[in-house]
């Protein structure tokens, strides 16, 4: 197993390198200029040029690339071109907010999704099933930002139950949770739809499996069959999917962070894209890539346990 993890990590290096290179090129090919963005519209061409020089943007591209890789190898993510604060600080600040959101959404998804999925599977082709499936299909058709706007409209504008803006620091847990609820619900409800559908499909597959039939044939009660055998078997592939959902959540959090004006990796990225803050943007992508590699690795390991057919030498 350890050998397998080591091998996967080594294999990830060329992938990461490819990602870094692509990102390095992409952010620079895009039109726009961070120096103009940083100085504002009043600045003279002279001041802009002076800043470009200081930012190191007048260096040849290959040199900038070598510097970027060198810094990266030393674990230095550089400084923001706009605010000149270390990028690592910015990321360290926003990352917990994004992870908190993804985690809460996943929790909501699992808590609501699994029971719904099991229920619709067990009562297959009943009214419960149809309604459950229709609702979950609507759920996964929802663009996250639109659901966010609806929740804001109903629970923050019409009925002022929750704050709609911003966030509170983690040192004030109660406040922090209060701010978290609407954004987490936005992602969590959509997540619920996916997990419910997945669970239904997995449970159905398992219920039609031979050993469940055998269990039934042995005269075991339906409930016992369901809980002792089917559910347990179903839980594992479902939970292993959480890793994959987590990647998606990190992506969809971009929109939710925009709508709810929450700090987060996604909001930082959109801001950096718009301000042409190359160093911040490429560093965020590096962090995304690392998160994805780690989540994939974990998912992969979990799969190894789930599916006995997958074996690594």
């Amino acid at each position: 197993m350890l050998r397998h993890i080591a091998r996967r990590l080594l294999l990830a290096i060329p992938t990461l390198l490819a990602v870094f290179t692509i990102i390095f090129i992409i952010v620079r090919v895009a039109p726009g200029d961070p120096a103009t963005a940083a100085l504002g519209d009043y600045a003279s061409a002279e001041a802009v040029e002076a800043l470009r020089e200081r930012m190191g943007l007048n260096e040849p591209l290959w040199r900038q690339y070598v510097i970027f890789l060198g810094d990266l190898a030393r674990g230095d993510l550089g400084r923001s071109l706009i605010t000149e604060t270390p990028v690592i600080d910015q990321i360290a600040f926003v990352l917990p907010y994004t992870l908190e959101l993804a985690f809460a959404a996943t929790l909501i998804g699992l808590l609501l999704g699994i029971p719904t999925g099991v229920l619709t599977a067990v009562r297959r082709n009943s009214m419960t099933d149809y309604v459950g499936r229709a609702v979950s299909l609507v759920g996964l058709s929802f663009p996250a930002f639109y659901l966010g706007i609806l929740l804001i409209y109903f629970f923050a504008v019409r009925v002022r139950l929750f704050p709609s803006v911003g966030s509170a620091p983690f040192s004030e847990p109660a406040q922090n949770l209060h701010y978290l609820i609407l954004p987490a619900l936005t992602l969590g409800l959509i997540e619920t739809a996916y997990i419910a559908r997945m669970t239904r499909s997995v449970v159905l597959t398992i219920l039609s499996d031979d050993y469940i039939r055998t269990a039934r044939a042995k005269g075991l009660q339906e409930k016992v069959v369901l809980v002792r055998h089917a559910l347990r078997a179903a839980l594992i592939p479902i939970v292993s999917l959480v890793g994959i959902f987590a990647i998606s959540l990190i992506g969809s959090s971009v929109l939710v962070e925009e709508v709810f004006a929450r700090p987060g990796l996604g909001k930082l990225m959109v801001g950096a894209t718009k301000q042409k803050d190359y160093t911040t943007l490429q560093s965020i992508m590096v962090v995304y890539a690392l998160i994805i590699v780690v989540i994939n690795l974990i998912t992969d390991i979990v799969y190894t346990y789930v599916d006995p057919r997958v074996r690594y030498g």
Partner: peptide, 25 residues
């Protein structure tokens, strides 16, 4: 299997928990 799942969840959660160290206003 359960250990693996718990492990996966723990890694995910620990990330969220590191954020709990913030400064008071």
């Amino acid at each position: 299997r359960i250990v693996a799942i718990v492990l996966a969840m723990a890694v995910f959660m620990s990330g969220a928990l590191t954020g709990l160290v913030g400064s008071a206003t």
